[in-house]
Design a protein around this nucleic acid. Structure first.
Lengths: 204, 204
DNA sequence: AGAAATTACAACCACCTAGTTGGAAACTGG
DNA sequence: CCAGTTTCCAACTAGGTGGTTGTAATTTCT
């Protein structure tokens, strides 16, 4: 008989999943190695064998969860409506699962400019910038990047700052729907302005 | 002679200043009580005497730094330009000193919906909403709140997510100026749309 | 089958951390 | 000048923290 074969890939995946959850809710400094191991049902020594240390584990979580952030929701169609639609879908995605936005802000706060997984993430960003240029022909690379930063800022800040929403808009049943509409409208207006400007470069 | 009188207010202020800096850079979980006391040049026992514990000290820092966040930069003038100008000044303020945005996001991530200093902050928010309505006559309370959330999201996310900017727009000498212009433009367009809509309520 | 390598884990360790204490120095009211 | 109170601090503590180690079980290679 084969008395239960070892499945190191499964163990790694279990660990990474538990680490993602722990880092997502508590951040790098607040996370506890023991808690991650317990949550995964794995001895914590495995963490050091597979990932190295706490920082490297955080790196692995960030790369796994964020490198594909911009791929999970594609830009479809063209014109300003396409960008607005994209923003709406990104908003919905983050509303359903705030893991990516939270990790993004944890990384920004705890790591500053020190970014891990550079090549892959740069490629993902470049790809999104290209999609934006394709959707809004004539728009400059810089303006496309700025539009994307605007979209990410609007969609990602919402789930991380629930208090701000509560203080400013005071809840209400259709609150999320209202905020979503506001984001989509803002993105549409900005994208439309960029597109219009791209078609008449030197107008007053 | 008076051999150096005790100045408890100064000691408190020193502690609060050091705590603000520490919490700003490291967050609640990453901050160290010993470091705060050392930075302030004060024995750490004073922290427990004056503020209670680490959490309460964080509360004090948040209330001191964030309750007035929306007051430090006023909304001046009227019309969509006034809101755009406000966004620009808020952007500049946060660019010069990222304390408020960082604390805001630390609080959002580490505290969730549990907000401290509610009455004062609610009053500040309400006041800003009122200023917005005054600047954009006819606009609804909800739309004014949403516009302010948009402004705060855009201005506060930038200094906390330097990496995003780097990945998307890749630096450059006038990078900050470009981002600022993008934010101001986006706010102007949104405010203008809200104002226009407010003046012709039932238009196609 | 047997040696070598891999995976697993309980116990362990050195250090750090928030919070406490006991008492000295400085002020205050009488 | 003398209790009584407040401010201050060095030293301490109890428990947590990231990281390691010694060893046993399992798999692989030949």
């Amino acid at each position: 008989m084969t008395p239960m074969a070892w499945d190191t890939e499964r163990t790694k995946a279990l660990l990474l999943e538990a680490a993602t959850s722990e880092f997502c809710t508590r951040g790098l400094a607040g996370a506890r190695i023991d808690r991650i191991a317990a949550e995964a049902g794995v001895n914590k020594e495995r963490i050091y064998q597979y990932f190295g240390n706490k920082n490297a584990l955080f790196d692995a979580v960030i790369v796994a969860a964020l490198s594909s952030l911009m791929d999970e929701v594609p830009i479809e169609g063209s014109g300003p409506e396409a960008m607005a639609d994209y923003a709406g879908r990104l908003f919905d995605h983050h509303q359903k699962d705030a893991t990516a936005p939270r990790l993004l802000f944890w990384e920004g706060l705890e790591r500053g400019t020190e970014v891990v997984g550079l090549p892959k993430r740069m490629a993902n960003c470049a790809s999104k910038v290209n999609s934006t240029i394709a959707a809004l022909p004539g728009v400059s690379r810089e303006d496309a990047g700025d539009l994307l930063i605007t979209i990410v800022s609007l969609c990602d800040a919402a789930p991380v700052l629930p208090a701000l929403d509560g203080l400013m808009a005071g809840g209400g049943p259709d609150r999320t729907e209202r905020r979503r509409a506001a984001v989509v409208r803002t993105v549409y207006l900005t994208a439309a302005a960029l597109a219009a400007e791209a078609q008449e470069p030197a107008s007053a």
